[in-house]
Design a protein around this nucleic acid. Structure first.
Length: 504
DNA sequence: CGGGGTAGCTATACAGCTACCCCGGTGCCGTATT
């Protein structure tokens, strides 16, 4: 079989050999096993379901978190004309979606990309059931633990969907997962421990730096200097949209590089444009919230700065992991200011409903139906929170198969179950935050070891430089970057304006 | 909790200060609306 796979790889994709981990994953899938693949992004993750898609009889379903990821991949596949692929999502017109469904029924596709939300729709499930799903792939599977438990609960309904589709083998793929997240994914999809294919977490070519600053002012001047002096293209992560806007404006006053902000509050067209400009090298610096990341398939990003601390070491690892995929030296610096923990604490607090809100919600359930939008608004429960409450209420047995509420539901028991589930999640989030804080406040332990150990990796080798505490020369990463020329009119104009009107 | 914006005061400076208020991340989907 190994030989067959190699031939398929050569003839269909034009590669002579597999990259680390790929063959391992694919051969197990072809044996009908469910697999969890922990492969570095850019390491050819998508090939591990694209190749089986060609060899397996029915259709391969790919659950993907972002519309942009789905359209990108489908376009690429169509351009290569190797694999007939399609996607279903809300960016399409009704007509397009109908056409895709028709094509599916006629067996015109081998690969279908969908969001977890779309997969919940009965129409979609029925069509898939009829044509037969041979492989159920979940791309960026860390989203299950990262988002599933709070604002995208449909992620947690994936195992149920797989069951309804006749239990095809599942391939869950991600780049970063702690032992705990691995366990959760394995349990959800009944993946055997021996079918976890993991590559080392350690990124030997990235130097890890932590820069302690007393206050916001000191941090800002240090960061602005660093942004200007580091060589190559880079990303600066902030934890709020406001911080992004402010940092971009202050950089533009004196900074020399081509820079742009990026966050979820921007128009989707602008976001696409900015990402494309960064990819093509027309921008040197992106200042972003955690919205910027997935789907960035750029090998030569030279540095990532964390202007503020992220909410977990998972997020941190994912974000610095975008540096140096080409294997050349890269640099990651985290600015540590004590107060940064507050914003994350606030978000965790805000995210979950109060005990009283849960009780009132359950009282409404007891009256025989899921609360209406008006009732939810009266309780000051956001639509996202309502979704979360409905999910946990269902899990506690408050919902019947037809979608209505169970008669004479025990409101107290349901409320208790929901509150417990929410408390558990909240505690987990706070523990992750604590681990992140500990890492940021570290004053002598090797950062590489701390980070790798968090993910259960004991391999700590490094290529050029290790970390702040093992000794690090920042000068090694400075140098000229493409930058913008001084004569460039629009930029000079903008700079002059910024000087005059710093608040614009 | 803390950063940033703004109103308002002082009192003559094309500001500086304080007190106060507001807001804070990640994305599907579908329906109503511009």
């Amino acid at each position: 079989m190994r030989e067959q796979l190699r031939i398929a790889l050569q003839t269909c994709f034009g590669y002579r050999s597999f990259r680390p981990g790929q063959e391992e994953v694919i051969s197990r899938i072809m044996c009908g096993e469910s697999v969890l693949g922990l492969l570095a992004t850019g390491g050819g993750k998508s090939l591990t379901f694209q190749l089986p898609a060609l060899l397996l009889p029915g259709i391969t379903l790919v659950v993907s978190p972002l519309i942009s990821l789905m359209t990108d991949q489908v376009q690429q596949l169509r351009a290569q004309k190797k694999i007939p692929a399609a996607t279903l999502n809300s960016a399409q017109s009704r007509e397009e979606a109908r056409e895709t469904l028709r094509g599916l029924e006629q067996g015109r596709f081998k690969l279908l990309y969908v969001s977890p939300e779309r997969l919940q729709q009965p129409v979609v499930q029925n069509v898939l059931k009829r044509i037969g799903v041979s492989l159920f792939a979940v791309d960026e599977a860390h989203c299950i633990s990262q988002w599933g438990h709070d604002f995208r609960t449909d992620y947690l309904r994936l195992p149920e969907a797989a069951k309804r589709l006749g239990n095809p083998p599942v391939l869950a793929l991600t780049a970063t997962a702690t032992a705990e997240v691995r366990e959760e994914i394995c349990q959800l999809f009944a993946i055997k421990p021996e079918n976890v294919v993991a590559l080392p977490v350690n990124r030997a070519n990235i130097a890890l730096d932590v820069i302690h600053a007393e206050d916001e002012g000191e941090r800002r001047s240090l960061a602005l200097k660093l942004m200007d002096s580091l060589a190559g293209q880079g990303i600066v992560y902030c934890s709020t949209r406001q911080a992004v806007e402010v940092l971009v404006s202050s950089y533009q006053i004196e900074g020399k590089k081509r820079i742009h902000g990026y966050h979820g509050g921007m128009e989707s067209m602008e976001r696409m444009l900015v990402q494309a400009q960064f990819a093509s090298g027309e921008l040197d610096l992106i200042v972003a919230t955690n919205a910027f990341g997935m789907g960035i398939d750029k090998a030569d990003i030279r540095f990532v700065l964390h202007y503020q601390m992220p909410a977990s070491l998972e997020a941190y690892a994912q974000e610095i992991g975008r540096v140096g995929r080409d294997g050349k030296p890269g640099y990651a610096a985290l600015f540590a200011v004590r107060e940064d923990v507050q914003i994350h604490q606030h978000m965790v607090e805000k995210e979950y409903p109060t005990q009283e809100q849960v009780e009132q919600y359950c009282r409404l359930l007891a009256s025989g139906a899921f609360p209406s939008p008006e009732q939810l608004a009266a309780l000051e429960i956001s639509p996202e929170t309502a979704e979360l409450l409905a999910f946990y209420a269902e899990k506690a047995g408050a919902r019947q198969a037809d979608g209505t509420v169970v008669r004479n539901v025990d409101e107290r028991r349901i409320a208790r179950a929901i509150i417990q589930a929410l408390e558990r999640r909240k505690l987990k989030k706070l523990q992750k935050l604590t681990a992140m804080v500990r890492f940021a406040q570290e004053r002598n332990q090797c950062l590489r070891k701390s980070l790798n150990r968090y993910f259960g990796d004991e391999q700590h080798s490094f290529a050029t430089q290790c970390c702040t505490y093992c000794g690090l020369s920042r000068d090694a990463y400075t140098g000229p970057s493409p930058g913008r020329s001084e004569e460039e009119m629009p930029w000079d104009f903008r700079r002059a304006l910024a000087r005059l009107l710093p608040n614009l």
